[in-house]
Design a protein around this nucleic acid. Structure first.
Ligand SMILES: [Zn+2]
Ligand SMILES: [Zn+2]
Ligand SMILES: [Zn+2]
Ligand SMILES: [Zn+2]
Lengths: 126, 126
DNA sequence: TTATATTTGCAACTTAGTCGCATTAATTAT
DNA sequence: ATAATTAATGCGACTAAGTTGCAAATATAA
C-alpha cells in the first residue's frame, strides 16, 4: 500500500523533507502545508512513504510522532535502525549515525531497540 | 505540587499500581476506575505522584504514555533512569534492572537516554 | 482522447487530554 | 466533637490529533 502515483501533494511533502535533515512532526507538517494540502492527505502520504521505506517514524520524548528520511530502507524492510537525538531547547529530533549495542535480557526475546537521547543540540549549544 | 491529602481516589490509584509490576496506561487506568473516579482526577493524581517520585512516565512504542512505580526516587529528583521493555504480543511495559551506557556524541550535550526494547516478554514466550 | 483506478478534499466523527468552577471531603484549629 | 480551612473532586465544556466514508478530481494506461 505504498505510493503509486506521483501527485502534487506527494511532491510538496517530499520537498518539506528535503529542506532539512531534522525530523518533522505531523502537526508541523499539517500546519506548514495547510493552504495546499488537506490534513487527511498528509497523514495518508506519510503512511505510504513509511511503507515504502522512504520515511521512518520516531516517537519524541513527549510521545509526539515525527518523521525523518530513511537512508537505506526499502519497501520490504526498514533496516535503518539507529538512535535519535532530541534537543531540549529547540525540540528538534535528528537521526544519529552511531550504532547501538543490543543488550541481551534473560527470559526476553529482544526484537528492536529504540534509543532516544535527550540534551542540547549543536545549534543550541552556541 | 505533589500529594497533600490521603484521599480515597489516591488509594484506589495506588492499589492499581500495587497489583502489578507492569506499567499502566492512563487510558486503561481511566477505564478500570471509571465507576469510582472521574478521569480528570486520575490525570491529576498521576501528575502529582510523578512529581513526588512515586511513579514515572514511560512513552511506549506507539507514543502512548504509561506509568510505573519508581524504586528509589524522591520529590527532588527522579534518579530512577533505566531501560524499559515492551512486549509486541501483550503490549505490556516493564522496567528493566539493567544499566545503559550513555554514549558521547560530538557537538551534542547528552542529558538523558531513553531506551525502549521491543520484543516478546517471558509470559508470552511460553 | 477516453477509460481506469488512485488520490484527494470534505465533513463528520472518535478519543485523549485540559480547564474553570462549584461542591465535597480531608485536615487543622477551636 | 465541632467548626473552619483549604485541598481535592466531579462535572461539563472544550481543544486538538487522528480516522473514515464517500463523492469529486487527477494521474496513468489504453
Ligand atoms: Zn536545539
Ligand atoms: Zn532516524
Ligand atoms: Zn507479552
Ligand atoms: Zn521504569
Amino acid at each position: 500500500m505504498g505510493i503509486v502515483r506521483k501527485t502534487q501533494s506527494l511532491q510538496l511533502v517530499l520537498n518539506a523533507f528535503n529542506k532539512t535533515t531534522a525530523a518533522i512532526s505531523t502537526v508541523d507538517l499539517v500546519k506548514d502545508l495547510k493552504s495546499e494540502i488537506n490534513k487527511s492527505t498528509i497523514y495518508r502520504i506519510l503512511d505510504k512513504l513509511t511503507d515504502d521505506g522512504v520515511l521512518h517514524a520516531v516517537i519524541g520524548k513527549n510521545g509526539v510522532k515525527q518523521y525523518a528520511k530513511c537512508k537505506s530502507c526499502s519497501k520490504k524492510e526498514h533496516t535503518d535502525n539507529h538512535p535519535h537525538f532530541q534537543c531540549n531547547s529547540c525540540g528538534k529530533i535528528n537521526c544519529l549515525d552511531i550504532s547501538v549495542t543490543i543488550p541481551q535480557i534473560p527470559n526476553y526475546k529482544v526484537n528492536t531497540v529504540h534509543v532516544l537521547i535527550e540534551g542540547e543540540c549543536s545549534q543550541c549549544l552556541q
